[in-house]
Simulated scan of single mutants.
Amino acid sequence: MSDTPPWSQSEPQICLSLTKYKKDTTNPEVYKQASLEITSRHQNYVQIFTDGSKVDEKVAAAAVSSVAPNSPFSCRLRDHCSIYTAELQALLLALKQAYQSQESKFMIFSDSLSALQALGKLKTDHPLLIQIQEFLHKINADQKEIVFM
């Protein structure tokens, strides 16, 4: 259970506009142009890129910031964890970076639609989602802004 009551949680800002393009039939240049258009509206935002990955039974997550590309946050997860868990862990790592940063505006990039959708629905069916919501609450209390894409 979260320490933060549900009524005090604010809904995260999540931009899913790239999902209107079908991945298997869209030219990568279209994605690039659409991404540039979105990021141009958020020019003063620190960009944090996330990824969760799994090779055989080995699972890891990472988040790297545009202001500290040589200092990524990363961790190894228990063997056999799902990609979904790895993607949620990567989002949590990104939020930890944002929380520790002196900057105030962040755009967090994820390639996991299912993780972003769960976050947008304020689901609490996964322990990492609860931790993410706790960090978002702390970050909002610090007057920092997060946009997920």
Rank of each mutant, 00 (worst) to 15 (best):
F106G: 01
P5G: 03
V46E: 08
G120V: 09
P72F: 00
D3K: 12
K58M: 11
P28Q: 10
C81N: 12
K121G: 11
C75A: 12
Q89C: 08
W7V: 09
P72A: 12
A141V: 13
C75M: 14
C75N: 13
N140V: 15
D56H: 08
Q100A: 01
T25V: 06
I38D: 13
T39M: 12
K20P: 04
I48R: 10
L16D: 02
S74F: 10
Q117F: 04
I130D: 02
R41M: 09
D142M: 12
L119K: 05
P6E: 03
N44Q: 11
L136Q: 07
V55K: 02
F109N: 06
Q89M: 12
Q133K: 07
Q9D: 05
A118F: 04
D125A: 15
P12W: 03
L122Q: 11
K138A: 07
S17L: 01
L136R: 07
S101Q: 06
L92Y: 01
S110P: 00
F135E: 04
I139C: 11
D3M: 09
D3G: 12
Q43W: 14
Q13S: 13
D56Y: 04
M107F: 08
V55E: 02
Q89K: 12
I132V: 01
E29F: 13
L88S: 00
P72Y: 02
H126T: 00
E87S: 00
H137T: 03
I146C: 14
K144N: 05
S66E: 10
L128V: 08
Q117P: 08
K22E: 08
Y84N: 05
S8E: 07
K54R: 00
D3T: 06
I146N: 01
W7Y: 14
K23I: 08
H126F: 01
P72N: 03
Y99H: 15
S82P: 14
D24I: 11
Q33S: 10
A115G: 06
N44M: 11
S112D: 04
A60R: 06
Q102E: 06
T124E: 08
Q13C: 15
S8I: 02
K144F: 14
E103R: 06
L113Y: 12
I130V: 05
L77G: 15
K22M: 07
Y31Q: 05
Q43A: 08
